[in-house]
Design a protein around this nucleic acid. Structure first.
Lengths: 256, 256
DNA sequence: CGGTGTGAACCTTTTCACAGCA
DNA sequence: TGCTGTGAAAAGGTTCACACCG
């Protein structure tokens, strides 16, 4: 329950403070709040209301307040939240007080872009090493990092204390890479390959699949088209297969 | 309720077959099922059980069955689902029976990679045009497409019937680009810029923020570290700061 | 008075467990 | 017998509305 706390009761030793298990949904939104807060800080705001921050983060204020209350955060009634303090709190909870080392595997089209993406560096991470299995790519330099052969992974992972791996290989190679990452102690993986990875308990995987995002949008397009089309038309029967599947693949609705 | 349809009860007019509003959670998983089904088809499977498909897609079988039943899909009891049929159904529902034209705006580091990503082409989309506001980049050729100046957007959007836009610009430019896209009739946007976009009702936006994904993983790393650290320590009260926030920013747990 | 923190209601999603069909 | 389809229960998330504090 109460994450509440009274100042003046500092914790001891290597102690890690209550990292109460926040709801996943909340965790997923904290980074968004953090980004919004950094913007506010840069524009000189010292304090912000739940309403203001909610707008900046694209959520509603009730949700935001509930999320922040999970961290035991203190706002000031009648005033709002202290921007700087909240940044510290969220960064602490997200474990961003240390700059985490990340290994990126697969320096093809997408991997190349990721290696050069400065958003990682500016938001708490350090790409510590780049790997590829293709000798053609080994030795290439990207952003001051030389691409290493994947066989170097064990050595480098140890040297750099790498706990997070990013997979940007083709799908066919992804599971093997995941196994290699896990073998060297990586416990969090961000997977850009379009495939399901299986990993042991205790290892977290998040997946980003660009085509899937578009397909979800496509569904909504399809839906919108069908809605606008319905009212209009007088036309022929194109329809209703069992299961709601059209036989005639039809040209998307009408209107557009 | 029943999305069910009985054969022989054809629907009328410009009718688009049942595109009942599926739960968002289901919509978000359909593309994953589709990918898994394509894999199965390629490896010669003609039929698959809910258990089998669920494994391939990384979900549990109850969820999968419920999802598919939403589409009114027919499996065969005691047998499973027909792979080819299910592919057609899902592609239909997702609106992938037509190859949708996509405009990509922002051909920097990330945009460049997206322009070259063949996953879009192979999974139902056609990148129809590339835009950038920087004259330096206009004229560059990527994958047989020439980068156009953003001012050309209105003309090209009309010519190519573009309904989906991808924003891969810096955050500062993203809202303006979104406005421009909306102005030319785009109703779905995939946003890679780390910012919130505001768009009119009826326009769908999905966001992909690479740093956020890492930050979510970072939270779990932090959490795991704190858990493994706890048991170890003998003693001291490590705990419960008010608000669960450490005053002392402490050095991440111990281990690592 | 303004705005946070939060119980309670509501809705969505997941999971369970089994009836019923091939 | 095997596996789908689905009610019903459980869990998780969101929204409401307001008590309470600065």
């Amino acid at each position: 329950m109460s994450q509440h706390r009274h100042p003046g009761a500092p914790r001891r030793a290597g102690a890690v403070p209550a990292l109460p298990d926040l709801p996943e949904a909340t965790v997923a939104r904290l980074p968004e709040y953090l980004r919004a807060l950094h913007n506010l800080a840069e524009t000189g705001h010292e304090t912000v209301s739940s309403e203001g921050l909610a707008n900046a983060a694209g959520v509603n204020s009730a949700k935001l307040r509930k999320d922040l209350s999970q961290l035991g955060s203190y706002g000031t009634r009648g005033v709002g939240y202290d921007v700087g303090l909240l940044i510290d709190q969220i960064e602490y909870v997200l474990g961003l007080t240390q700059r985490r080392a990340v290994a990126l595997v697969g320096v093809g089209n997408l991997g190349h872009a990721l290696a050069g993406y400065d958003g990682f560096a500016s938001r708490g991470f350090r790409i510590a090493a780049l790997f590829d299995a293709d000798q053609e790519r080994v030795g290439e330099e990207i952003n001051d990092l030389v691409v290493l052969h994947i066989d170097e992974l064990p050595r480098v992972a140890a040297e750099e204390s790498i706990a997070i791996g990013v997979i940007a290989t083709p799908a066919a190679a992804a599971q093997r890479v995941a196994d290699q990452l896990v073998a060297v102690g990586v416990t969090s993986i961000l997977n850009f390959a379009p495939c399901v990875l299986s990993v042991p308990d205790g290892v977290d995987v998040r997946k980003v699949d660009l085509a899937i995002e578009l397909q979800i949008l496509s569904f909504h397009e399809h839906r919108k088209a069908s809605l606008t089309a319905l009212p209009a038309a007088g036309g022929s029967a194109l329809t209703a297969l069992p299961g709601g599947l059209a036989v005639t693949e039809s040209q998307e609705a009408i209107g557009t």
